[in-house]
Computed example of a mutant assay.
Amino acid sequence: MTELLSDSDIDAALTGLPEWSLVDKSITRTVELPTFPAAIEFVSRIAVAAESADHHPDIDIRWRKLTFTLSTHSDGGLTQKDVRLAHEIDSLLPDD
């Protein structure tokens, strides 16, 4: 079992993840890519990173918009796994 983040830990983590929002026991971010194929390619890149980390986001695909939701379901809330994967998702975003 991974240790859940405290409220102050979550606040500190979100300071470094300004595009992410706290929603219930998860963090979420929506991004828009220039085309549908670009969005799907980005999801594929995230899939590789998530598989490598053995931690998988919930992903909602709506044409060019992708919403990522992170929570460590097995532990019932946010852990460092979620923070690390959020940073990884941000780092993989293509430059505008």
Rank of each mutant, 00 (worst) to 15 (best):
V48H: 04
A49I: 07
A49K: 10
A50Q: 03
A50P: 08
A50W: 03
A50M: 04
S52N: 14
S52K: 15
A53T: 09
H55E: 04
H55P: 06
H56S: 09
H56P: 07
H56N: 07
P57A: 06
D58Q: 14
D58A: 13
I59D: 01
I59Q: 03
I59L: 00
D60E: 07
D60P: 00
I61S: 09
I61M: 05
I61W: 03
R62L: 13
W63E: 12
W63A: 12
R64I: 10
R64K: 15
R64N: 04
K65A: 11
K65S: 14
L66N: 00
L66P: 01
T67M: 05
T67A: 04
T69M: 07
L70G: 00
L70V: 05
L70M: 04
L70I: 07
S71N: 04
S71V: 00
T72Y: 02
T72I: 14
T72W: 05
H73Y: 07
H73V: 09
H73P: 02
S74G: 09
S74V: 11
S74H: 11
S74Q: 15
D75H: 10
D75S: 15
G76Q: 10
G77I: 02
L78S: 14
L78C: 12
T79D: 04
T79P: 00
T79W: 03
Q80P: 02
K81L: 15
K81D: 15
D82I: 08
V83W: 00
A86N: 02
A86D: 04
A86F: 06
A86I: 04
H87L: 10
E88Q: 14
E88T: 15
D90S: 10
D90P: 13
D90A: 10
D90G: 09
S91W: 03
L92D: 15
L92N: 11
L92W: 15
L93V: 05
L93Y: 11
